[in-house]
Amino acid sequence: MATFLKNSAHRAWLVLMIATGITWYLGEVGAAGTGAIVAMLVIAFVKGRLVILDFMELREAPLMWRLLLEGWLILVSSLILLAYWISLK
C-alpha cells in the first residue's frame, strides 16, 4: 500500500474515487442550496485539478499549458457558480 501510494497517479485515482462517492452521497441525501452547490463545485474542481496535474501530467509541463487547463477549470466553475447564484436570488 505504501509503495502504491508513492505513485502520484495512484494517489490521484484513490482520491478521485472517494470524491466521486462524496458527490454521489450528497445527491442521495438530497443536498441542495448554496452550501451543497459550493461543496460540489469544490469537489469537481479538486478532481479536475488531479486529472490535469497527475493524469495529464501537466504538473511538470510549461507553465502556460498548466495555466490554460487550470484556468479552464476556474472559468467553468465560476460561470456555473454565477448561474446558480443568480438562480438562488
Binding site: L26, A36, L41, G48, V51, M56, V76
Partner: peptide, 26 residues
C-alpha cells in the same frame, strides 16, 4: 501514446464536471 492518453484524460475531465452539474447540483 502520450498524445492519445491526453485526449482520453480530457474525456474524463469533462465528465467530472458534467456529472455533478447535470445529475446532482440543485
Amino acid at each position: 501514446l502520450e498524445s492519445g492518453a491526453a485526449y482520453w484524460h480530457m474525456v474524463d475531465l469533462l465528465w467530472i464536471v458534467l456529472f455533478p452539474l447535470v445529475y446532482v447540483m440543485r
